[in-house]
Design a binder for these strands. Sequence first.
DNA 1: AAGCAGTTTAAACAAGCGTTTAAAATAACG
DNA 2: CGTTATTTTAAACGCTTGTTTAAACTGCTT
Lengths: 211, 211
Amino acid sequence: MSTKNKILDAAESLFADKGFNGTSLREITSQAEVNLAAVNYHFGSKKELIKAVMSRYMNELSPRLEIALTQVCEQDSPSLIEVFSAFIDPLLSLNDFKNNGTSNFLQLLGRGYTDSQGFLRWFLTTQYPGVIDNFVLAVQKAYPQLSAEEMFWRLHFTMGTVVFTMSSSDALIDIAKSDFERDLQISDVIRNVIPYVAAGVGAPMPVAIRS
Amino acid sequence: MSTKNKILDAAESLFADKGFNGTSLREITSQAEVNLAAVNYHFGSKKELIKAVMSRYMNELSPRLEIALTQVCEQDSPSLIEVFSAFIDPLLSLNDFKNNGTSNFLQLLGRGYTDSQGFLRWFLTTQYPGVIDNFVLAVQKAYPQLSAEEMFWRLHFTMGTVVFTMSSSDALIDIAKSDFERDLQISDVIRNVIPYVAAGVGAPMPVAIRS
DNA sequence: AAGCAGTTTAAACAAGCGTTTAAAATAACG
DNA sequence: CGTTATTTTAAACGCTTGTTTAAACTGCTT
């Protein structure tokens, strides 16, 4: 395996575990068993390494996601459950691409949204706008009464639910095992969260708040 | 104002803005206009300072929250909307206690859950278990069909929604202003999120998943 | 006024950080 | 084989971090 990939793999699992700020280049290069300077040689800087780790997943995920969401949009009257369920297969396919891929990617997403002053939010919205657009279209088709403003809020709430849940999914799976004697996988967590967010987004429109 | 309180105030707003790991003692003491060594003299360590900042709010909030949740439980058949609405007044009362109190506290809560490897989760569940117990009881009364396991998941999803939303509430309020020309407050965000989480927690029980 | 506890201060400490350098090792190619 | 290019390496750089030290200062009591 190439030095570059050894670094990417080590960085990925460490970033997922301890966040971007919480992981040092020395930890990464030592787990990857490469020299410290290799990161700056191959990637330029730590920030570029973070981007590279995220891009590796996004390039795999975003086309599958766009296809799945487009297919939902082509239905006559898709339900919100169907919209959100469109994420399942693309996300789980990351496990074929790499061990613990789904779990790592979702944790990274969570880290990126809270670490680093919203840098990842900028990165995703500017580099992969297609996914977001397709998603908004699908939700609009499934729940046309939802106003643009209400949609804005609920999609952010959903982002929060998913991102937070996934960034702490390891802990949740542990608790579920000790409290309920259930051996769950990340795929179970995904399937669990879908009815929740679908119901949240599908909540009835409130009567007007203020002027 | 005492040195101790100057430090607490500066730390609070900086922690809320940039996270616990992202804020240095030098930033705190310089904004508080006190000597660098004052933190270690008055609080012992940075970790103890974090606890002190959180405790100041929790000691104010948790009794009000317990009262409000108990009142909801005393109703005949409370709705989930009523359960979650019980949080509004106690949370907003933090604004009387301190400028931007509500917003700061909720952002701190978000930071604490993602920074620092779940240290805050431990801190809250061990130091303030009463709030969680009361909350679970209220949800149980409002939605008795919810199994313990499903309850566990949905409360964590809710935690995620709230914590994530609030930790990025400043950005959301900014976007809402530029995109929809609305001048929102943290109280509006709270009111917006309640129908969402109430619907999420109140989602119909799915048919059994696996063994 | 002298002594003393409590507090503040400037300075230094050791450790960790991301990054850079220049030499050594390896690979690729005419 | 010899000569470039590419990659790896050890060492150091400058900087920031949380914490500690010991001296200076404060306000109070006897």
